[in-house]
Design a protein around this nucleic acid. Structure first.
Lengths: 364, 364
DNA sequence: ATATGCTTCGTGTACGTGCACAAAGGTACG
DNA sequence: CGTACCTTTGTGCACGTACACGAAGCATAT
């Protein structure tokens, strides 16, 4: 905007610099065929008039199509990745005037090599931008190096490997969220000193990196502030969900005085639903992620607090950052931690309101 | 998008319907001069091919300028309204390619009639969209009726009067946030049963509607869950901030056993800074809003929890909703409650990250 | 002097939509 | 049958930018 409240156009620059719009265009895009004297005149004018290109006109004129590919673990409905996906597709819809499209590729996160196979297919799509989760370091490194060679920007979602220099990262600071969870847990515990950590064990593995980091953050806080607390552990067999009830039964027979627990994965509902079924209201539970079953438990007071990591927002931001980078040429913040949101029955409606409109139950 | 992955244009509709683009254009804009038979053919094609106009091309072609006016209380730097303003201007910047501009008008919220005077000036600007806070019912009604008569959309920020039918409302559910605060307070209190509510009294008035609603929500929760609690009150004279310290001194002389307190306005730092100065670490405090002085208190552990209401986000959303309505012709959600975010020293950095980049202290 | 090659630059058309204007067709009236 | 007038329709230019094409200018070679 200049003093007349009208926007500076290429034409204005050309006029003031005494050249044609074509020359200004060449300077703007760093193309060859401009004399040193013209280039200097144009650059001076661009600076002086603070030219800001109209990106919408630009996108219209260039008439280029962009294909983004998102590579995420295959999942069932009402799981974490479902929300990530929803956020991505919503953003694509909102930016559809820019001729962008999104192809989502899935891989079995428990199958050796599935990630690499899916990556190959991804590369074959010749995408203009990529969204993926860097789960395994070496495998991610392989695909990232090829994307980098082709100049294709890639965004990391959920977890980050900064050394691989993604265009951007969107996810939660897992360690700190566990640390925060511990503070809330200790507040909730009052004078109690014993709690249980519920875990899902899959083929001897303790779950994703994110989950492990949360747990570490939790333990760190407890060690710093409450070294006298007794932290028990109950490991579920993730492959045999039907055995969970028996495992919980056994645990409480052994430890009847434990009234507080937390899960660092999104399956708090397993414990919550157990409590509902057994009509126990004396057990206080925390967990992660706004799955429908978790929300139900929260509403029925079988879960006290849920820590949300805004998966929908993450997905949306990932696609948006690719648009901003490729089309609107904006600068992108490389590291974007999501808020560590604490949800209880008292404030949850105002979080669902944002991205899950269908859930909204207005509190009047 | 059709099956060829190319977007349906007006030209495509015209071709398929056997008419010219001018006729399609007339149908799209509901203008006169179209025969019944043509209209039907075109409408059928629009439906069949699911035509979605390219709003960026549309905005480019119409070449219209939009003026938005925002009417908010005059304020000092580092106050709540400062963030609202920042959100508005940020959004204007991001949508600047649409030829929008924003004029912010201020009024003295403590001066009788100042709101109406400012409203008159606002109307004289002939704005295309308006953002304001409906503080006083009757005064707001006056200006809103004139805006409505002129067909100028208006958005309410911070608080809402649904009967006045704004295009949209962005703000927090004040009662529920107080209710939520009470739950957190009672968790924090453990076995204690006594707390103090700090207030700012200005010429006999207890502060804004929002503040009163928060307090009501707080009391409601306490009555439901902890009717045995003793809630004391300490009223500051808002006009004489220098007397605050003496007032706090007096209060604690009278009530040495009170270790918990809350403010429903944004001035928790008054109490927090008192505690820092007197090196008291045995008092636990809650408050509202991410003012710099509150953030400092939180970081130095003089405030335990702050409830944020995302003023920057509110301002941003207000401007965005006007753009979406006027320019992009999108449907607008009329009632938008902001998340009731609970911030502590453990998670605050990830909230500042979003809108107050300058604060960011990365936790690694 | 003409031809060739290179650099530098301006012009024209396109993107998808909005809108003004003109053209075409129809009806009514003298 | 011609004119006037209205309704309906098509055409063309504009918005700001991208890019292809060709023109102009100059130096060197023939």
């Amino acid at each position: 905007m200049n003093k007349n409240n009208t926007r500076i156009r290429i034409k204005d620059i050309a006029l003031q610099a005494g050249v044609s719009v074509g020359t200004v265009d060449r300077v703007l895009h760093g193309r060859s065929g401009v004399s040193e004297s013209s280039r200097k005149k144009v650059e001076a004018m661009l600076q002086q008039l603070d030219y800001q290109p109209n990106m919408y006109a630009s996108a219209l004129a260039s008439n280029k199509k962009y294909l983004f590919v998102c590579l995420i673990p295959s999942h069932l409905p009402d799981e974490y990745w479902d929300d990530v996906e929803a956020g991505c597709t919503q953003c694509v819809k909102e930016y559809s005037d820019f001729n962008i499209s999104l192809s989502i590729r899935y891989y079995d996160q428990y199958e050796q090599g599935a990630f690499l196979t899916a990556s190959e297919q991804l590369l074959a799509d010749h995408p203009d931008g990529v969204i993926l989760t860097p789960v395994l370091r070496s495998e991610t490194e392989q695909i990232v190096s090829r994307l980098k060679a082709q100049g294709v920007p890639y965004v990391f979602i959920d977890s980050n490997i900064p050394e691989l220099e993604p265009l951007a990262f969107y996810g939660q600071h897992a360690h700190q969220s566990g640390y925060f969870a511990a503070r809330m847990m200790s507040l909730m515990m009052g004078t109690a000193k014993e709690l249980v950590v519920f875990r899902q064990i899959y083929e001897g593995k303790l779950g994703s990196n994110q989950q492990m980091k949360r747990e570490q953050g939790f333990y760190a806080y407890m060690q710093e502030h409450h070294p006298d607390f007794i932290l028990r552990e109950l490991n579920f067999n993730a492959k045999e969900p039907t055995q969970s009830e028996a495992a919980i039964d056994r645990f409480f027979q052994e430890h009847p005085d434990v009234h507080f627990g937390i899960t660092f994965n999104s399956k708090a509902y397993i414990v919550g639903e157990y409590m509902l079924q057994h009509q126990r209201t004396d057990f206080h539970l925390m967990g992660y992620d706004l799955l429908k079953r978790n929300i139900r438990c929260l509403r029925e007071r079988a879960i006290d607090f849920i820590i949300a990591q805004q998966p929908t927002q993450q997905g949306y931001s990932c696609v948006e950052s690719l648009c901003n980078h490729l089309i609107l040429k904006k600068d992108i913040q490389p590291c974007n931690y999501m808020p560590i949101a604490l949800l209880s029955i008292e404030n949850i409606e105002f979080y669902l309101n944002i991205h899950k409109k269908e859930y909204l139950q207005l509190i009047v």
